[in-house]
Design a protein around this nucleic acid. Sequence first.
DNA 1: TTTATTTACGGAAACGTTTCCGTGAAAAGG
DNA 2: CCTTTTCACGGAAACGTTTCCGTAAATAAA
Lengths: 337, 337
Amino acid sequence: MSKINIKDLARQLNLSISTVSRALRDSYEISAETKEKVFALAKALNYQPNPNASGLRAQKTKTIAVVIPEMVNDFFSLVIGGIEKVTHQKGYHILMYFTHGDHELEVSFINMLSNGRVDGVLLSVSGENNQNSHIEELNRNGVPLVFFDRVCETADNVKVTSDNYESSITATRHLINAGCKKIAYLQLPKNISIGKKRMQGYLDALSRYAPQQTPLVVECASDYDDAFMTIKKMLTAHRPDGVFASVEKLAVICYRVCEKVQLTIPDQVKVISFSNLQTASLLNPSLTTITQPAFDIGETAARELFKQIDGKHKKERRENVILKSLLIERKSTAVRS
Amino acid sequence: MSKINIKDLARQLNLSISTVSRALRDSYEISAETKEKVFALAKALNYQPNPNASGLRAQKTKTIAVVIPEMVNDFFSLVIGGIEKVTHQKGYHILMYFTHGDHELEVSFINMLSNGRVDGVLLSVSGENNQNSHIEELNRNGVPLVFFDRVCETADNVKVTSDNYESSITATRHLINAGCKKIAYLQLPKNISIGKKRMQGYLDALSRYAPQQTPLVVECASDYDDAFMTIKKMLTAHRPDGVFASVEKLAVICYRVCEKVQLTIPDQVKVISFSNLQTASLLNPSLTTITQPAFDIGETAARELFKQIDGKHKKERRENVILKSLLIERKSTAVRS
DNA sequence: TTTATTTACGGAAACGTTTCCGTGAAAAGG
DNA sequence: CCTTTTCACGGAAACGTTTCCGTAAATAAA
């Protein structure tokens, strides 16, 4: 129960509190010898300034919040890695919040963050993006905020995303080139911006490169079993020869359904998916993916946030950032030889 | 730039600060009507008490720290999920720190946490567990700490783990029963406690159930390429017919090596691994795993921590918790039919 | 020598809460 | 009618920092 504070240091050194404080911050108005003594004792006692006190006084917490839908997801794990790299360099701390796709929860988290708990927020929104009063409230309170991946289109904040529309075009075209005549698109229910862009890419690619095909958009629930049934019904009823999963989870479910209903990938149906799965190349068959630069997204978003936190000229208009994804071709879309 | 505080509320309501504060905390000495008014205005203005001020005053932060080696790892992701469940129920916040297996970093994080930044710490240690002065320092400062998975044996704190030794016995025996005559064990270099127990299980199972076999322990570097080369050399030189990977990462590398050197799993070599991979059943071939109750570990560790944080009678001796892992048999250890 | 400046430090206010102590007025008890 | 208790609230201290003022002594400038 030591928990020594600056007062203890001052007493032990026969100095005033203000002198010790200044010495610790290496102020020019403290003599070299005094600094030495203060540093030495501080180190010896492992003195750590109380963050609440400093934070209260300085109105700075050296902490940012990261709000994401979930954790068991290689994409978000990698993003966190990128965020952490920058944050650690800056000597900041990371508070993590998980919304589990629940918009209410997101609102309550964001509201919670509006009064000095953090110096900035990184947010990947969950669900409907039309209601953004909580975002506006945060902006009003002057808390810097940067979106990444799942952004709120209508909000006036920096957004860091990947080229979802173009990648969807590429992915769809990849299936077309592989000979698919009937391509299904699997999407999640929430009409998050990212989902819209991806679907638009799919639709545009079809009408541009395979106008004879009718789009087959399948909305899957976020619940695992529901999604499984939906995909199963779709596969058996419509018999597509290509499936484009807008998120990794749906590709995984699709694999399981194919196993169940005895559809062989890629001979009977080819599968491509947005995914950052570390094991994509080890799947049976290996999965062709559109891989987002997840780590880079996290790193970039964090850097943008710190630009605002450190920003002298805060009111200069910040640009959004769009990073490129990569199509990695594997066996799930291989043409039969 | 609103950021309203309790003073603003008091002024607008013509009440004193103390009255407003008590009203918000639903004190019995404030009349019902006054409470109403205060609540109403607080809600209307989205008043959020400044956490630094409350924390400073109460010497409580409603925040815990979670210190883990890495994030891109389904085991830790699931653990975080369990931790978050409990933490959210309790209305606490989570600070995350990643050690990247660097002991120095772990020490600096832990030291940082010794002065009121958090009310408690959940730690999965990285690397050597013989140096634990930083743990002792934290204990001296009265900050509650609970270990999970990778524990520090010599420290006198609650530890939540899974039955590593018994599971290793089971896994090894599983390979023996599948007919393996030469079983290799892949381990990481750091002699963390968890690694020792798992290896001991392997060794004991061999001497007990297949005494004719000589153990083949292979220490792999944490670096991917190094580990790949080590495993490749081992597989080609010793030609084991069974591989027991002590961690998921090594199993994945082993799969890649087998692909490279044209060894078929499970016919030429059977593979089993400790793993929480969500895609284990989708691998080629599907991977037999010892799956730890990761979510449960997180949940339990968090509950144990809160017992200490909330604890009236803090000095009662807490018991360690050991949760059971599950062997999930899949094709990577299938006997040829 | 007198005045101005620099050096090195101390006192105290402020950050936003919570809570200990008071206190006037109303209600209850005698 | 007077005393005691309860009720409902206000003033101010305290949490540990940082920083704005001050200031005595030493040095430099006049």
